[in-house]
């Protein structure tokens, strides 16, 4: 848990200081935080042992529903 937190904080700080120095548009921040937040949430959940359904499994479930994959 703490390791995950530490890794993400280091990554974000490293990138943010570059972004701020170069005065990036808001879009960059939004997209950056979207991906980072998604990654961070999932890895926290994984670290906590509560693994959410993964995209691959969802895709498989959808395919099974349609009946392409048995």
């Amino acid at each position: 848990m703490l390791t995950v937190l530490a890794v993400f904080i280091i990554l974000i700080i490293y990138d943010l200081q570059k972004f701020i120095r170069k005065k990036e548009p808001v879009r960059v921040f939004v997209l950056y935080f979207f991906f980072m937040a998604a990654g961070f949430t999932v890895s926290l959940l994984l670290a906590a042992g509560k693994r959410p359904y993964s995209p691959s499994q969802m895709i498989e479930a959808v395919f099974k529903m349609i009946g392409i994959v048995k």
Partner: peptide, 20 residues
């Protein structure tokens, strides 16, 4: 290149998350 690190981080997480 602004977004590579974010996308890659997400890929890494996704790859671990993907399968049991």
């Amino acid at each position: 290149s602004k977004l590579t690190s974010a996308v890659t981080t997400f890929c890494v997480v996704l790859s671990v998350w993907e399968y049991n």
